[in-house]
Design a protein around this nucleic acid. Structure first.
Lengths: 153, 153
DNA sequence: TACTATTAGATTGCACACAATCAAATGGAT
DNA sequence: ATCCATTTGATTGTGTGCAATCTAATAGTA
């Protein structure tokens, strides 16, 4: 059945997955440069975004918000804690739960981070409509593929 | 100046960068599952795609095709060589150049890989127009941001 | 009370990703 | 012939990503 697809070998340039993969890496690289002075990596920036939006989330809530599991979050949060941007507090009611809280230093980073974000968004050179359209298509793709994944079990 | 952006904290869900980041991870996860039986990771699949398209590329040519530097490619190619899918051959004319060549086993993987790709693309549930539109927007974003990056130096 | 299943988070191991650095080889200049 | 900048690929170190596993703690059941 896939023989029709094989008569012409699939070009890397034409793959949606590669367009997505390389665009994501390029945007992340732009953020790396923009966030460099703040001492934040891109996933660390996402984590801080989630905390600026709602402080005091648990590790699991954070993971759901930015789609990362504890294997990635644990060392990432440890580094943010070492940097003095957050602190971790074990819940008294349920000692399995760890709440992540911003320090004053972490809150102080919101404004320069917003400036960095503005610079990167400007570099995309997309109109407001294109921006919204792209975000919407990406969201649909993610939802559809994720649904198809879970449907297998 | 960024104070206007700060009156309302930026929501993670609304960030284009996060939509891109999480969509890319989701699609990669779908490929991981689809490629699992073939023993290929997603970056390894991209490498094989580039070789199925044009066999015998040098490491640098491969890196340009799939946007990876030698620090990533070197160990990845070593693993593909260990798996028996490729072999590396140092050029006689210029001994700095290493040419990457498919083995028969590597070529045999093209057809099942195309089937895996078809399954993942079906899972996106995007129409042909949406597919093309999304790819085009991603390509423009990548080009624009990459140009802005290099313009700084 | 004991037994069991579930949950939360941490840890481990493997595979990218990339900056920085290195060694070998080449090409061009004197 | 010798020096020197450049090129090619490999290596090292840090930081994700994620599957698998582990421990501790909680909740439900008999």
């Amino acid at each position: 059945m896939p023989t029709t697809a094989l008569e012409q070998p699939a070009r890397v340039d034409e793959q949606l997955c590669f367009a997505l993969y390389s665009a994501s890496k390029t945007l992340t690289a732009a953020y790396r440069q923009a966030l460099g002075e703040l001492g934040l990596t891109y996933p660390q920036y996402l984590t801080m975004l989630a905390l600026w939006e709602t402080d005091g989330r648990t590790v699991a809530e954070l993971g759901r918000a930015i789609d990362l599991d504890s294997g990635t979050l644990s060392p990432l949060l440890r580094r943010l804690e070492t940097s003095g941007l957050i602190r971790r507090e074990r819940s008294v009611l349920d000692e399995r739960v760890v709440r992540v809280l911003l320090t004053a230093q972490g809150r102080a980073l919101e404004s320069p981070a917003a400036a960095a974000r503005a610079r990167v968004e400007a570099a995309t050179c997309l109109s407001q409509e294109e921006f919204t359209q792209l975000r919407s298509l990406l969201h649909r793709l993610r939802t559809n593929v994720a649904a198809a994944q879970t449907r297998l079990w």
